[in-house]
Design a protein around this nucleic acid. Sequence first.
DNA 1: TATTGTTATACTCTATAACTATA
DNA 2: TATAGTTATAGAGTATAACAATA
Lengths: 166, 166
Amino acid sequence: MPGAAKSEAVAGLLPRMSQLSALLNRGQLFERAATASGVALERPAVTILVTLATADHPLRVGEIATRMQVVGPHVTRQLNTLEKRGLIQRLPDPEDQRARLIDLTPSGQRLIDRYLAVIDGWFATAMAEWPDRDRTEFVRLLGRMVEDLTAQLDSVADSVPEDGTR
Amino acid sequence: MPGAAKSEAVAGLLPRMSQLSALLNRGQLFERAATASGVALERPAVTILVTLATADHPLRVGEIATRMQVVGPHVTRQLNTLEKRGLIQRLPDPEDQRARLIDLTPSGQRLIDRYLAVIDGWFATAMAEWPDRDRTEFVRLLGRMVEDLTAQLDSVADSVPEDGTR
DNA sequence: TATTGTTATACTCTATAACTATA
DNA sequence: TATAGTTATAGAGTATAACAATA
């Protein structure tokens, strides 16, 4: 049987990941960072700005949705708000008249830079006592975990067609 | 200035953590595991069972809420469903007549064991190619990150009393 | 006919407010 | 008077359905 690793090693992984997730979603990481950086936007809107800032080039609506793992209409609604506030702009995509390229305005870039600076500062402080090597390793392993877990879930989805096993 | 670590090392941490969180919340880790293990419950209800299973002894309602980082009424509502289905039971707390101790029934224990076995199996498969050392390190560092980030956010909350800075 | 994005609507999850019982 | 839990209600976040425009 391939693919089965020691299960004892991974016991306790789900609770930890859930806690981390709760910290992001309800532990007010967002809320407090927004306050501390003077950002008066809802969480989903900020998430879009973070996605755009991380991409460093304009993204299509569909691409934003994929990266955020949400559906298109959700992105559209947030973009409407962000556009009204002058934080993003919808540009025509020269390669496809149906699509739009979403880009940060200078004002949007400044805002999200402030926000990310606060968060990164908190992360840095939280890990201040860590050995350098642990910091590097954690970022690396976290990235790999996201990749491998995504692939694993995709393969599960493929092998369980429609209605599930039962 | 104490507490400031290299910020370059932590750049990219937020996107990764967000992705992991999205995988848990919307990437259908839960939904697929529930299907694969034949668990017909909503996500919040399963989260409570996981919390109880991880604790290995009965918990008060308030303690469940704290561990899940949610408020009391949310827990109560889920418990009502779980009790009706015979998966948990409310026992009197001998030390305080106001409190109740929530415990898994044998049926609830079996159900959550099946569910956790599926998830742990997926985690193990996702990390099958990892060196043993990386697996261990990841679990350790993830645990420490949760601790340290929680402490950091608490200290931020303390230093920003009511209305925030601006 | 398939795809990109939008609008309108509905659902899931969690919080706040008001209350009861015990400390 | 404060605390543990419950009930009822409200809100935030995201999904599904129906549609328009371009490919």
